[in-house]
Write a protein that binds this DNA or RNA. Structure first.
Lengths: 209, 209
DNA sequence: ATTTATATCCCCCCAAACAAGGTATTTAAT
DNA sequence: ATTAAATACCTTGTTTGGGGGGATATAAAT
């Protein structure tokens, strides 16, 4: 029976909060706390022997931050799914966590039931996120609707952003090199820039591309 | 009372499925179907008068595809949240949908309760996704752990990918132009490529950057 | 103690790419 | 009938890119 339980480890420096989670998860059917640590350094020593399926990880930790701990934990227990559990909702934090290998991102106001569901979800290959986080992630994909660029110009700027030369872009779009140049001139003049790099940066910042 | 209900519109060509959703949502407390259409063209004419809070949109539609319909619907009813409801789970489809302005993405095997919850979630600023979709979205942020590139090389390749010239990169990293060139030479040789564009493409495909 | 990897800097060359200044035609949409 | 978009051409001048050959300091690994 025990082996069918989902093995959960905690890394959270606030003792009160940690005990709260221990209580919640430890008493839930099908879940088992196999490790509970106050810092990454603490966890590093023993977590491999805890065989975690899921690790709940705080971001603000003494010593190595939770964000930086993600790749290290992944190395120690490659098969574990890491869920970030934090009060922080800054975009940068979220994206760094996900880029570093987190499987999910929950805010600390997540109700107990949702936490348990998220643990299971992560284990089954899902990507549990608080709804607000999910929307931020989705929004990061979205384009602006008020781009001054025409569709063709946007397309060409996208190609430029992949590092392709004008010549190559011309070939791939079956148009003349001179046409590509014309488009670029127009792009620069619309965006008020004088170089590839500036055009790309401005376009990305404003989600034109 | 009626005005407190969440106004939902459907755009789905399969009549059986559409009727199923109509039944589900129409009979749920707090929800009201204010429009139901078999295609974008159909919806375009009347949907503005339906005042939808949330639009459930299929991707495979006769005429204009659901994906392409998203920006058009957004223009017709800017405040509506669009949730894609589909059998397709291809990465490209998902990212195009989100880029076009969808607030959520559900697969058609989503249980009724979750559909209703997702409608509410979208309305409240969340980003409802099927768990599998969420994981795909999260994975799109992640880097490979087996990049052959050193941290410095990765950093420089990232800069190159923003369109910056070697000179500018050198200035911004406070190193000599020659150093940047050396790194680039090493990057090319490690990646077995002979141009910016190829290096960027390969690195992006393999999530080195 | 000695390799190895990383990051740094230097020299050469030359073709190719880039940016900015124009002008002009065709097509599609309003 | 007018506008906007996409297309193509020309000139001029500067910068960058990619390939080749090296060197050196430092840190990590063995």
């Amino acid at each position: 029976m025990h082996d069918l339980d989902i093995h959960v480890c905690l890394v959270e420096d606030d003792e009160t909060i940690r005990e709260g989670y221990e209580y919640l998860i430890g008493n839930a059917e099908g879940y088992k706390i196999t490790g509970s640590f106050a810092s990454y350094e603490d966890a590093a020593k023993k977590i491999a022997r805890c065989n975690p399926d899921v690790i709940l990880l705080d971001v603000e930790l003494p010593g190595i931050s939770g964000i930086d701990a993600i790749p290290k934990l992944k190395k120690l227990v490659p098969d574990a799914h890491i869920i970030i559990l934090t009060v922080y909702e800054q975009e940068l934090m979220i994206f760094r966590a996900l880029a570093n290998g987190a499987s999910g991102y929950l805010t600390k106001d997540t109700p107990p039931k949702k936490i348990l569901a998220s643990i299971k979800e992560a284990m089954e290959g899902g990507g549990p996120m608080s709804s607000h986080i999910a929307r931020m992630v989705i929004q990061s994909f979205q384009r602006s609707e008020e781009s001054p660029l025409t569709p063709r110009e946007t397309e060409i700027l996208e190609q430029i952003a992949t590092g392709k030369s004008r010549k190559r872009i011309a070939e791939e779009l079956f148009i003349d090199l001179e046409t590509v140049k014309s488009h670029i001139k127009n792009i620069y003049s619309k965006l008020n820039v004088h170089s590839k790099a500036d055009a790309i940066k401005l376009a990305k910042d404003n989600k034109f591309i």
